[in-house]
Design a protein around this nucleic acid. Structure first.
Lengths: 327, 327
DNA sequence: AGTTAAAATGACAACGCTGTCAATCTTCTA
DNA sequence: TAGAAGATTGACAGCGTTGTCATTTTAACT
């Protein structure tokens, strides 16, 4: 029995021949180790959690699927945990989940991954976790974080607009609390600065990553001064860009002839607007797969050395029809 | 110890006083029963599965959250299982999941809930399940199915268009394999028939529930004969309606002045098109909550009599700006 | 071949609960 | 107030694994 356990867990010191015999029987009987028993008996469990507070269904599904695909490979089970940081019980909730399911580790996604109250709690509980974060990679934290370089992506998308001849470029920010907001904003500012076109605070609108705030943002930016000053708007995400598009239509503005609009994230509905949105593509499923792999190296210890884990991703620009040369 | 177990499981024959004492201690110690141990020891486990094969992220998230909220209340854990019926291993996959996690039951969502190969397999394994189905409620199966009356909703949305004066109404179907497609189509036909406006097969396009097929559908329907014959298009879902909207723009058709377009499902992006879509609202989170409750009555047996479970839902029409009177 | 160290396997308890069945306590009746 | 019936509680095994440690087998030496 113990030998079968060794084979299943790929422990060393099992003779090749024994290994083969066991595996043959495993296949023949279609043996599936009982997760509950493994979780109960073992030192570390085979269950990990995915924590998110994100209204973007596409994002969440991508993250889930990425983590899930690795879980399947490694024999782990996934417990999903949507929550709301507006909720006072959030931390207690997470704690409860960890205890109930005896989680081996957690994947934290933005914006929760930015909350030190959560990471502190996890540190106290001595639970492994991996954070998916908007930000530029640092030398430390390489083994705890997966970075999404929104700064660079925003820099590039702004550069794209600049190269099309736009000078007065509006920016619709997401929620202030989100790290991605400041990262994207800084990338935008840096690109402008590098083109000797300093950012104008009148061109920056504080939104909320929602369609509605995109609508408001465009209305505000375009109303603030004469309409023609701004010839391009960079949406902090696709949803707000779609909102800006919507507002522009209401105002009778032609896209992209009179105004270029770009999004961020390349979520499916950036392809379902008219015209389709130029945006920055973020490979969320790949990102979350790497997050899961990184987590597994920690929970399983040295058992699986997974060396080619990428810990930094830069979204790549996808040029579509919502951006065009300044006329 | 056993008494604590009784209290936790709300078993009868525990004295009120004992119950209170135990609960006090439970609260004080913040005791969380270990799920793995419960799953291992008990007759039925505390884990249920949610199986889906649906490209609509909003739908999936709603279903997840609904089931999850009930799971939390009842102390169950949820294992999500996205899969693809195009995949030959699908059934084996589900079987494996059931065995590994020792599932107490499953919630099946369309289109998988329509596959008899799956339900047969589950019957053989003697696993409880609840199916969420597109269809009109029948007297049997009240305890195994949650019906979403797409027929009636399509009837009503078609009636809405008819009452606006439209006579030639196009219909863009979803995948043929989906029950919802035929239900919605029949509702559409029935409404037409009741208004002495027999359905014209030239006005029906076989789509795929995707944005792209909505684009194709509108192009085809509007090109087939002279553009003005059709004054309204009913999209089989919001995505196709958005596609139809997109195509109409490309063709320079004004919505809703020249053409009314309606969707189905009321997914978030039906609010993010321009103009916003008239659609049929489906309360997926509520539906999935009831599905979960129905499942729990089966897995927990008579222990929790949950009598006010609704097993039939009819999406309600939401009139927005994409539909208007025929000019 | 005989010895020793290392590799491989096996025996057994333990993980934290629940089901079964026995023991105890309450309540009610005569 | 004894006795019976029923309500409540408790003792104990067992769920299917893994960790620990003992035992056996193999390999590597004189």
């Amino acid at each position: 029995m113990k030998t079968v356990s060794r084979v299943i867990n790929k422990e060393p010191s099992v003779r090749k021949k024994t290994y083969d015999v066991v595996m043959e029987a495993v296949n023949e009987l279609n043996y599936q180790p009982n997760l509950a028993a493994r979780n109960l008996a073992g030192t570390s469990s085979f269950t990990v959690g995915l924590v998110y507070d994100n209204p973007n269904a596409y994002y969440v599904i991508d993250m889930q699927n990425g983590v899930l695909s690795r879980c399947k490979d490694e024999g782990y089970e996934l417990v999903i945990h949507p929550c709301s940081y507006a909720d006072d019980n959030m931390e207690q909730d997470i704690k409860t989940m960890i205890k109930r399911s005896r989680l081996a580790g957690l994947v934290l996604t933005p914006p929760l991954s930015e909350q030190s109250s959560i990471t502190n709690m996890l540190d106290e509980l001595n639970i492994h976790y991996v954070r998916v974060l908007s930000g530029r990679p640092t030398d430390e934290d390489q083994d705890t974080c997966i970075y999404v370089n929104d700064y660079k992506a925003a820099y590039e998308i702004t550069s794209h607009l600049l190269s099309l001849g736009h000078k007065n470029i509006g920016f619709i920010c997401g929620d202030k609390e989100h790290k991605s907001t400041s990262e994207r904003l800084e990338g935008y500012k840096a690109a402008l600065a590098d083109h000797d076109t300093p950012a104008n605070s009148d061109f920056i609108y504080d939104g909320k990553y929602s369609f509605e705030s995109g609508v408001e943002g465009a209305k505000t930016l375009l109303a603030n001064d004469n309409k023609l000053a701004i010839s391009a708007i960079l949406g902090g995400n696709d949803e707000m860009a779609a909102g800006a598009l919507f507002a522009s239509r209401l105002m009778g503005i032609q896209i992209p002839e009179q105004l270029s609009i770009t999004g961020f994230e390349n979520s499916p509905f950036s392809r379902q607007t008219w015209p389709k949105l130029t945006t920055a593509h973020q490979e969320n499923d790949v990102i979350s797969q790497h997050a899961a792999r990184l987590l597994f190296t920690k929970t399983r210890g040295a058992r699986n050395q997974d060396k080619d884990i990428i810990t930094s991703f830069t979204p790549s620009i996808v040029v579509r029809d919502s951006s065009g040369p300044k006329l």
